[in-house]
């Protein structure tokens, strides 16, 4: 039995914050197979921008897979113009996601759009403490979704909503008393998570991002430096143990 390209009908679409687009994709197999932290690789159907776009899976339930992405460049711009009723050609679920330690004392730490792939994880944890950072009030999103999973603190860089400062600073106390940190967000944040986890001797898993080619491990483009050399983000990652990652 061979892996198939999946065709998913867009059954829901909305802008959940400025330039942050949510699509609900209908495909039973995809929703069943998806694990927290994995991604899908979407053909945007452009002759100019030929590469597929890797987008993290935000949530999966019944026959629906929810993805959320930021309109950042031409590719995501094209993707943002797809409408309900249209069908997307995608590969997935791909990659290695988070190790779900259901009953562990977990801190879930998201920075900006790095928050999106953490929802499906948080939903699978018994009592996660969630900390999400955004640039400003305008960018804040998914607070309700996360609050349904556990106590959730929102931080904004300029203090226009919630905690004034970075989410990692808001999470300091919680990280003093936890078994594992799960994080996704900007590199400086992930670097800090690694350092904190190493100091405290606790586990941490971080989701890495890199410019990607095939998405299935064949082209060796999307690599991340780890203790064992350059590992493929699309296959060994995107989620790595923080202790394994070597920041360059």
């Amino acid at each position: 039995m061979h892996t198939q390209v999946k065709f998913c009908k867009i059954v829901g679409k909305r802008e959940i914050a400025k330039n942050q687009v949510e699509l609900l994709l209908e495909n039973e197999i995809l929703a069943k197979e998806a694990l927290p932290g994995q991604f899908v690789h979407i053909n945007i159907g452009s002759e100019k921008n030929i590469l597929r776009r890797p987008i993290s899976i935000c949530d999966a339930y019944d026959n629906i897979t929810r993805i959320v992405f930021e309109i950042k460049g031409e590719g995501t711009e094209i993707l943002s113009k797809k409408n309900v009723g249209e069908t997307l050609d995608l590969l997935g679920p791909l990659g290695t996601g988070f190790t779900v330690k259901k009953d562990a004392k977990a801190v879930v730490l998201g920075g900006g759009l790095g928050s999106f792939p953490l929802l499906y994880l948080a939903k699978n944890l018994t009592s996660p403490k969630v900390f999400l950072g955004f640039r400003d009030k305008e960018m804040v999103c998914m607070e309700e979704d996360f609050s349904a999973c556990g106590p959730t603190v929102i931080a904004t860089d300029n203090g226009t909503y919630g905690y004034n400062g970075f989410a990692i600073n808001a999470a300091k106390e919680a990280m003093d008393d936890c078994d594992i940190i799960y994080a996704c967000g900007p590199t400086p944040m992930l670097k800090a998570v690694k350092q904190i986890a190493m100091e405290k001797g606790i586990e941490a898993e971080i989701s890495m991002e890199q410019r990607m080619g095939c998405g299935i491990g064949a082209c060796l483009v999307c690599v991340c430096k780890t203790k064992s050399g350059y590992d493929k983000v699309c296959q060994k990652g995107p989620v790595f143990k923080a202790s394994e990652v070597e920041f360059e």
């Binding site: 990607m212 483009v221 999307c222 690599v223 430096k225 050399g229 360059e248």
Partner: peptide, 8 residues
Amino acid sequence: EGNKPPRI
């Protein structure tokens, strides 16, 4: 080992 990313 190959080159430092980004590679594409």
